[in-house]
Amino acid sequence: MADWSLSHEVIKASLTGIVSLITLGSGWVVGSRISAMWTLRQKRRELALSAASELHRIYGEFFAIWKLWNYSKKEAPSSSADEMRWDLMKRAAVVEAGFEALLMKIASERVLSRADCDDLGLLRQGFQRLRESIRSDKSLDWSSSSDPEYVAFKRLSCHFANLLTSDRQWRRPRQETAADALLDITSNVHEIRWKQLSASNPRSGI
């Protein structure tokens, strides 16, 4: 009888130990998964804020080049005009390249709607306007806060910044629609839409 009681206690203690180990193991697994998910979320947030910061920098550089270009058309001595034009052309090209990189980033990382792609494609045309104006040796005449192109450029830039920092669904790895989104954004069809904006502006050089 004593042997049976002892065996019973041993089995009971063993089962209790096993249950404790399973509970601890399950808690560790769940805790590790939660920790990994939180770390991933934090990392994505950091990358999103970094991308938004880069957009802010590009946006500021765009305006600096724009103001300098319009100034050079009116005030720069003819002896330095060509040199300044080439320098500003190079800076405008760098701005455009940085913007294109951000477009590829968001197309490959986020799930975008068709409306998002259309808006980003239209904004891309706006960023191209500066380089095209310099190439054509014409001022970029967004002289009024109500200029249709200027209004569209500001609104779409804010929309892009919000997209970069939003909780929009992240694209799963190897999802083929990433390339489709980028192709939609960079389609020349958006040039037609931008020209429609330009047509409503009597001062436009297009």
Rank of each mutant, 00 (worst) to 15 (best):
Phe160Ile: 00
Ala161Asn: 14
Leu164Ser: 00
Ala179Asp: 10
Arg172Cys: 08
Cys158Asp: 13
Asn162Phe: 11
Asn162Lys: 13
Ser157Lys: 01
Glu176Arg: 14
Arg171Asn: 03
Ala181Tyr: 12
Ala178Val: 04
Thr177Gly: 04
Thr165Leu: 02
Arg168Ile: 13
Asp167Ala: 02
Ala179Arg: 13
Cys158His: 11
Pro173Arg: 02
Arg171Gly: 00
Ala178Cys: 05
Ala152Asp: 07
Gln169Cys: 05
Ser157Met: 03
Asn162Pro: 01
Thr177Tyr: 11
Phe160Thr: 01
Leu163Glu: 00
Gln169Tyr: 05
Cys158Ala: 12
Ala181Val: 09
Ala152Leu: 04
Thr165Glu: 05
Glu176Ser: 13
Asn162Thr: 13
Asp167Thr: 01
Lys154Tyr: 08
Ser157Trp: 01
Glu176Ile: 13
Lys154Ser: 08
Ala161Ile: 07
Leu156Tyr: 02
Phe160Val: 03
Leu183Asp: 11
Glu176Asn: 08
Arg172Phe: 11
Leu156Gly: 00
Phe160Arg: 01
Glu176His: 14
Arg172Asn: 13
Phe153Gln: 06
Asp180Glu: 13
Thr177Pro: 04
Arg171Met: 13
Asn162Val: 12
Arg172Ile: 10
Ser166Val: 04
Ala161Arg: 07
Arg155Tyr: 08
Arg168Pro: 01
Ala152Pro: 02
Arg172Gly: 09
Thr177Cys: 09
Ser157Gln: 03
Arg168Asn: 06
Asn162Arg: 14
Phe160Gly: 02
Arg155Glu: 15
Arg168Ala: 05
Ala161Val: 06
Asp180Gly: 07
Leu164Phe: 04
Ala161Lys: 07
Thr165Asn: 00
Leu156Gln: 02
Leu156Met: 05
Asp180Ala: 14
Ala178Met: 03
Arg174Phe: 15
Lys154Thr: 10
Phe160Leu: 03
Leu182Thr: 04
His159Ala: 12
Leu156Trp: 00
Trp170Tyr: 12
Leu182Val: 12
Leu163Met: 06
Arg168Ser: 05
Asp184Val: 08
Gln175Ser: 14
Leu163Trp: 03
Ser157Cys: 10
Arg171Tyr: 03
Arg155Gly: 14
Asp180Arg: 14
Lys154Asp: 10
Leu163Pro: 00
Asn162Leu: 14
Ile185Asn: 05
Thr165Ala: 00
Leu156Lys: 06
Ala181Asp: 15
Phe160Met: 07
Gln175Met: 13
Leu156Arg: 05
Asn162Ser: 15
Thr186Ile: 10
Gln169Leu: 07
Leu156Pro: 02
Ala181Leu: 06
Trp170Gly: 01
Leu163Ala: 00
Gln169Met: 09
Asp167Val: 00
Phe160Pro: 00
Leu163Gln: 02
Arg174Ala: 14
Ala181Asn: 11
Ala161Ser: 15
Val151Arg: 10
Arg168Asp: 01
Ala161Thr: 08
Leu164Cys: 01
Arg168Lys: 09
Arg155Asp: 13
Leu183Glu: 14
